[in-house]
Write a protein that binds this DNA or RNA. Sequence first.
DNA 1: TTGACATATTCCTAATAAGGAATATATAAA
DNA 2: TTTATATATTCCTTATTAGGAATATGTCAA
Lengths: 125, 125
Amino acid sequence: MTRQAHPEDVFSAIAEPRRRQVIAVLSDGHEHAVNDIVLHMNMAQSPVSKHLGALHKAGVVTVVKRGQHRMYRLKPEALRPVHEWVKVFERYWTHQVDQIKQRAERKALERLIRIDDEAANKKEE
Amino acid sequence: MTRQAHPEDVFSAIAEPRRRQVIAVLSDGHEHAVNDIVLHMNMAQSPVSKHLGALHKAGVVTVVKRGQHRMYRLKPEALRPVHEWVKVFERYWTHQVDQIKQRAERKALERLIRIDDEAANKKEE
DNA sequence: TTGACATATTCCTAATAAGGAATATATAAA
DNA sequence: TTTATATATTCCTTATTAGGAATATGTCAA
């Protein structure tokens, strides 16, 4: 059997660090010309164009021609499947956080009890 | 410059559909032996072991030897960076949902107004 | 020890992907 | 029309990866 992962799969699209970097540039919600993105990327124009092509195939960006420029824009809805997939696991670490919170509250409570005890002891003196 | 994506990067680890399938098997939170996972996978044992190795490198699973078995368990916290990254974009589609909701509410309101008008017209008859 | 079983590893092939350089294409400007 | 600019595409090299088959390794059981 041949390979499974397709480039139009959004999970594969965002696996590339440079593509997440492109997404970061586009996450102001505005249109950006390719050269503008290149300026943020410390990479030659041709690979940037390829990454934009990959993101486009995955539906993560849209393109419109405007004059001699191609304006790319982020399409955040395309990232939704990733969010849906990963948020299932969120409860594990939020639960962890809850435990830490609970522990802190328990400690605070213990402290209060101790103070009460001390007060009670003082009275008995 | 050579390639950037590293296998120990969790984004790369979850880019493979088969590995997400492994994660799905492990998402009951219990330990699973390799052969158990293989049974769920419609794939030979050796590639499954390799995927488990990749997930382990990325910190997404833990292993313990138990007898002749290696028990794998999901480590959901490892997925947290993905969640943190993607949740930033959540507001775009929830906002979209809000707009749809608002539109539905507006329509419902218009309907109520129309009914009122009709009632008023009836009275005038 | 021998044999059965569980798993990892090695070796192989085919496919995929990244990045750079050079080139093609399209559009605007002179 | 010529020229400059913006971008995509092609070609090339190198590296990575998936999956299967075969094999090695480790562990239990008889």
